[in-house]
Design a protein around this nucleic acid. Structure first.
Lengths: 282, 282
DNA sequence: GCTCGGTGATACCGCCCAGGTATCACCGCT
DNA sequence: AGCGGTGATACCTGGGCGGTATCACCGAGC
């Protein structure tokens, strides 16, 4: 058995996602017959049935589900390899750091200052991204390192270095009665009439059902809190961007949040290693 | 830029390893001109110079070094994906667990017993491997889970669950004077005349220079210790395979060793998840 | 029941590109 | 100058990828 080609994997992933050869072929920009043949060849090569075709549709076998999961991250990795190689050539001494917009501003500032002070430090480009996008950016090579937060972000597959552990705080409208308290518990802010907790999207962009407003980024959140429409639970360093209409109250029973510096496993980049070293010594 | 094909990456890795087109072509079983062309095409596609060809040889550029590192693990991943898919099809409910021969025998026994007691538990095949082979076996898909040890094994790129933290002990010949002590320090056993500490191979199979014998596995080590020729530092659970000619003495200042259950990051295997759950509840 | 629409599989064809052979250009050594 | 050895180039061939046309099959309809 010689090795799989990425073209075959791309074809398979598309078919497995659509569960429909013709639609998959259209998405891939090829005709349906070559696609059927490519999948057959892939199955023959692996010696494994990946798709169960019966009347009325296509279904994944167990092995097919395994391959779908694995092939997706593999294709991400292929794209990542290409991008990292290109970046290594075009900007030999530059790193891209991804972080959630608004999070850990002070820490980031300290890290950048400390790193800039190092001799022949890499130039660092900061990319602000939405919730949970850092993992994707690391995986597909658009970023070299990222700020991520335990236990919120999935750190699996990355190498990490802990930077800072902090309490969480409730961000409340300044005029709300609860804002006068010096500390709160999660129970205190759950189900407060007229102040539902805001809901963040899941990985796939959907929202859990609930009373609170659906939000995408911190600016939306900030405004909704300032308007007195919602509250939120965030890590203590969020204080650095609070409005005067906001109040942050410590939560005694919320899990602590650890901010980590994360980078792709197996990275051998000198520049990443130097940045991590700087971060450790902060 | 469309995506890289694994064929191109295999070609590039071979050339980068040989730094010689003709030899690389021979290893790949193709002729030299198509190989030159393939590499040129890869460079054109990436828009990056990967190899510096001048008279008397080929050298990697910085970008080429990046691609070599990345492509190697990527090709491993491709092979892993194929193998895991095949295993998912041929043995739907079987897991392969890799562990260092001789290490953590009792813990393994407990895990296997507990797991066998679960309803519809996966069948578990235990593969014993040499030092540090577990990482490779997880990466290339020959194993689904592995016992690994911090801080010795590189856990980067894997998801892990801590199982057991234990002290390290010095394993000494029973007749040696130091064997009578109730505890030792690392300094005590370093540079003992006539009893040099055994040397394990590095990842690449080479050995650090030093006075002690070069060893590959625990049976070699056991015999050499029993003969009074060497000593070793191992985790406390190694006591389960000691000979009567061995004595284990606790080391007060050696770092503790944590045995973890490790599996490939992003694994979504139900069977792995169930085994991990069992392990956590041990 | 018949057609009709829609599925994936098959048959067949054309063309591109991977791979092979022969050769070149260039160099360091005798 | 000649030789051996490098990678690059030129050119040809063939297999495989992708295209069109069509089939086999099935469910849903007046």
């Amino acid at each position: 058995m010689d090795t799989l080609e990425t073209r075959e994997l791309r074809y398979f992933v598309t078919v497995a996602e659509e569960l429909h050869f013709s639609r998959a072929a259209e998405r891939l920009g090829i005709a349906q017959p070559p696609l059927s043949r490519a999948i057959q060849q892939l199955e023959r090569r692996l010696g494994v049935t990946l798709l169960e075709r019966d009347r009325r549709g296509v279904a994944l076998t167990d092995a097919g589900r395994v391959l779908l999961d694995e092939a997706r991250v593999l294709l991400d990795s292929v794209a990542a390899v290409a991008r990292r190689t290109q970046r290594a050539a075009s900007a030999p001494n530059r790193l891209t750091l991804a972080t959630k917009a608004g999070a850990n501003h002070d820490l980031l500032r300290k890290l950048l200052d400390a790193h800039a002070a190092e001799p022949d430090a890499a130039e660092i480009e900061v990319v602000l991204c939405g919730m949970g996008d850092q993992a994707r950016m690391l995986r597909d090579g658009r970023a070299d390192v990222a700020f991520m937060q335990r236990p919120f972000d999935a750190l699996v597959g990355f190498d990490t270095e802990e930077l800072l552990t902090e309490q969480q705080v409730a961000i409340l409208p300044a005029e709300h009665p609860l804002a006068a308290r010096t500390s709160l518990t999660l129970a205190d802010i759950a189900d407060v009439p007229g102040l539902p907790v805001a809901r963040w999207p899941n990985q796939d962009g959907t929202y859990e059902p609930g009373p609170g407003p659906e939000i995408n980024d911190l600016s939306q959140l900030a405004q909704l809190i300032a308007l007195g429409h919602t509250s939120a639970v965030l890590c203590a360093s969020s204080r650095s961007w609070l409005w005067s209409a906001h109040v942050a109250v410590p939560l005694t029973d919320a899990p602590h949040v650890t901010t980590v510096l994360a980078w792709p496993a197996h990275s051998r980049s000198q520049a990443v290693a130097r940045l991590v070293k700087t971060a450790v010594n902060l």
